[in-house]
């Protein structure tokens, strides 16, 4: 092959590679900043390799064939505009605290009930979980029951005050899910709580 022949061969291969890219876009994933402002990682394992992406707005093909690289703005907008626009409102949380040993809310927490109802009322098809917790004072099975009593008490107060939820689940984690880690048999006001998730 003479020089001209070699050159045109190279050009043809180059053009084929380019047109191959243009007509056959690869499936890909793009890392984004989380709503809380942090950025985590994604790990993509495909038939042609494994890639870790830890920089926001960098993407990788799902076959793992090439390293993370910035993604073209126009392509990003075209591929993801609808999925991103459909993202539901982010969930919100509230913590209600209780006096020791029973189901009576602290005065501050009783004052938060209206705010919870207002928050739920702004959402479409709102679903909520109400999870009761205790501190480590007393036996584990008694605390399991007390956590449930607290969750039921909180849910009933909310309903009585006019809460309107599409779905609501009530459960107890007893003393198994401490907010503040303590040894057994330790009174801790911050662990005597009901967590409310509004989704």
């Amino acid at each position: 092959m003479n020089t001209l022949g070699k050159l045109s061969f190279v050009v043809v291969v180059f053009v084929m590679a380019l047109s191959g890219c243009a007509s056959k876009p690869k499936s890909y994933a793009v890392l984004l900043e989380s709503p809380d402002g942090s950025t985590g990682r994604i790990v993509v394992k495909g038939s042609r390799g494994e890639q870790v992406v830890s920089t926001a707005r960098h993407g990788v093909p799902l076959d793992g064939s090439s390293a993370p690289a910035p993604v073209d703005d126009a392509r990003f907008a075209k591929d993801f505009r609808e999925a991103m626009a459909a993202r539901p409102v982010l969930p919100e949380h509230f913590l209600l605290y209780f006096e020791s040993g029973g189901t009576e809310l602290t005065p501050e927490s009783a004052g938060m009930l209206d705010k919870i109802i207002e928050t739920a009322g702004k959402r479409s098809a709102v679903d909520m979980s109400v999870i009761g917790h205790t501190d480590t004072l007393g036996k584990a099975d008694m605390n399991e029951a007390l956590g449930l009593k607290r969750a039921i008490a909180a849910a009933e107060l909310l309903k009585k005050k006019g809460l309107n939820a599409h779905a609501l689940t009530i459960e107890s984690h007893g003393e198994r899910n401490l907010l503040v880690k303590t040894p057994d048999e330790t009174p801790e006001p911050r662990n005597r709580r009901v967590e409310i998730s509004i989704r």
Binding site: S27, A29, S34, G40, R41, I42, L62, G64, M84
Partner: peptide
């Protein structure tokens, strides 16, 4: 996905299947 598997370490991301 048909092309590979994505593992997630606490974040937001988008993915497109061609």
């Amino acid at each position: 996905t048909p092309g590979g598997t994505i593992g997630i370490r606490g974040t937001q991301f988008v993915v497109k299947i061609e």
